[in-house]
């Protein structure tokens, strides 16, 4: 069936198979940051925004995104770099494979709750698995980022 999806600001109209996942759709359109880690909505690697809500694209059909805005990390280069550099400063990106999904969800968290507590951070990102870092470095990066962003805003 024919769908129109606004992927990172680009209007794409094309035929998709009714059982094609949004994950496969965005990857086939060059958004390779979106990874498949489990196929069962357990790992968070395939997180994208549907409109402005984080969703797991492995469990969402492409047709569900018809007439909707889909954003991947490719569509948020500035935010990715800004927050990502704090992961990099901790060495907490490690293998990097889970990073795009984590960063998408972290961006969603900051938009919803600019000053999350440790517990709120853990809860919000609970579905983003990482096997390298033990999560501690990610937590340090998030807190450093929030501190930096706040001091930046104060200055402005």
């Amino acid at each position: 069936m024919t769908v129109t999806i606004f992927l990172n600001g680009n209007k794409i109209t094309e035929d998709v198979s009714p059982d094609e996942t949004l994950l496969s759709f965005v990857r086939s359109h060059g958004c390779k940051s979106v990874k498949c880690g489990c196929e069962t909505t357990n790992c968070g690697l395939c997180t994208v925004f549907l409109e402005d809500t984080p969703v797991l694209s492995c469990a969402l059909l492409a047709v569900r995104a018809d007439q909707k805005k889909v954003t991947t990390l490719e569509g948020l280069p500035k935010e990715a770099e800004e927050f990502g550099s704090f992961l990099a400063d901790q060495g907490a990106e490690q293998c990097g494979f889970c990073n795009p999904g984590l960063i998408m969800n972290a961006i969603a968290l900051f938009r919803e709750n600019p000053h999350p507590s440790d517990e709120e951070i853990k809860r919000y990102l609970a579905g983003n698995l990482c096997r390298c870092s033990g999560y501690e470095g990610q937590m340090r990066a998030i807190k450093e980022f929030v501190r930096w962003r706040d001091s930046n805003e104060q200055r402005q």
Binding site: S33, G84, S85
Partner: peptide
């Protein structure tokens, strides 16, 4: 920083 860090965190292929 790791040499590849920024490529990884910005989701490069």
């Amino acid at each position: 920083r790791k040499k590849d860090a920024m490529q990884l965190v910005t989701g490069k292929p």
